[in-house]
Every structure is written in C-alpha cells, then in structure tokens.
Amino acid sequence: MKTSRIWQMVPLLAPVQLLLLSVIVIPSVYVIWLSFHTSTFGQSASFVGWGNYVQVLTDPGFHSALWNTVVLVVVAVHLEMLIALGMALLFNSGLWFRRILFVAVLAPYAVSEVVGVAMWRFLFDPDVGPVSNLLAALHLPLLEWSYEPSHAMIMIAILTIWMHLPFTFVIIYAARLALPSDLYEAARIDGATPLQSFYRVTMPLLGPAILVALLFRYIFAFRLFSEVWLLTGGGPARTTEVVAVYLYQEAFTFSAFGPAAATAWIMVIVSMLLASGYIYLLRRQVRNAG
C-alpha cells in the first residue's frame, strides 16, 4: 500500500486510535512509570527503581491478599465447574420446564453486580435476612460473615459462584449439546454403563470446553473485586482482602500510588501468564483436531 493512501486513512482511523491511546496505552505506560516512583498527594514523585515491587512482594498484607485470592480462585472456580457440569448434564438428560429453568439459571448474569451483592447481603443478614432466619429456625449454624473471616470467605465464594455460574454453565451446556447422540448409542451397544459413558465418552469430549471455561474463569477470578469490596470491604480487619482490593486500598485509602501501580502490574503479569497458558493449550488442541 502506498504511503499517501495510509495518510488518507489516518483521519478516519484516528478517533478509535485516540480512544485506545487515551484509555489504555497512556494509562498503562503511566502506571509503569508510576510503579518505579514513590508518589502520593502533595508530593512530587521520586524514582525508587524496583523498590515498590520489593515492598509489595514482601508485604504480609499482600501475601495474605494473594493467599485469599488463590484460595478463592481454586475453591470457587472448581466448585463452580462441578456445579455447571452437573447442571448441564441434568439439563441435557431432559428436565421438566427446561425453558423456564434455563432462564432462571442465566438470570444472575443479567443482574448488576452491585444489586446482586446487595440482595445476598440482605438474604444473609444476621438479624433480618430470610436465609439466616430459616437457618435459625432449622437450628442450623448461621453464616456469621460480617465478623467471622472464614464465614466471610465462604460467603464471597458462594456469591462469586452464583454470579459467574451462567457463564460456565452455558459453555459446558453448549458443548454437551454439540455431542451427537449416536455416540452414546454406540457406547451402549459396546457395553458401556451410564457411568462408563460419562467417563469414557462425555468427559474426554467435553475436555476442551471445560479447559476453556476454567482458564477464562481463572483470569476473571484473579481480578475478583466487587464481590469482596461490596460485601466485606476486605474486612474484618483486612482478613478477606484479595489482590484487587489490596490494590484499591493502597491507592485510595493509603494514597500510596507507587506500590498500587506495582500491584497492578503484578496482576497484569499473572493474568498474562494464565492467558498464555490458555492460548498454548488452545493452539495444541487446534493442531490435534486438524
């Protein structure tokens, strides 16, 4: 293409380029710059090299936030996958009122996260929440999420599973619907019990879809923020803080922009590692299928 033609196109492409530049590229570069400086309100930034990274990586607060994040990612994402798989198979086996139930299962995705969290806070309110009242009436242990850290973590896990289940479910269900029924008939004639059909036909064939859903969810869950921030705010006493909340606290509570910027880049790098793992596996699958 001739250079003059490119210059003719530039004005037409410029708005999008400007938008990308202003909301993604410049802030990213600024955050990189910031992560190598100490900076707070009313002070000019001064260069500290890798200091912020060292500070964040050695901060016990960050360690606990990272630990909480990993625990939530591992527990919530896998639990969610099991539930989604079970539900997809249940839907596929011919359920009554399937259409209505399908809408019900997808509904959480249509609810704003803030509204969703407010709803769950009310349901599990220790004093007036209907679920808490029901648990009390049945003499079951209550979920003391507002002051018991482990209960709060359980509550966060339940909430995030509820919120993202539609995503995982739809991927698995669509993959299951795509499996031809005559494979199962062939397996039946070959002598497979329903359980053997599941392990030897369904699972291997759903493998790629499960992998895709899991990796997407790892990446989403690693950035977990609103569920925690809106439910516990990281409390009680920073015990339920996750990495994204840690970052928010550093930046906007403690006005320590340098360490916050370093945290942000650590998150980006971890997400990119997860994503590259995902792309590697995906490419391998495409190669195997071809």
């Binding site: 031809p180 005559d182 494979l183 008939e185 062939a186 397996a187 004639i189 291997p204 064939l205 493998g207």
Partner: peptide, 12 residues
C-alpha cells in the same frame, strides 16, 4: 453389534 449410518466413531 451395530454399524451406524453416521459411523458414530469416538472422535477422541
């Protein structure tokens, strides 16, 4: 034993 029109081979 049955041979299906679509072959029904296990793709994996």
């Amino acid at each position: 034993a049955m041979v299906f029109q679509s072959y029904a081979l296990y793709p994996h």
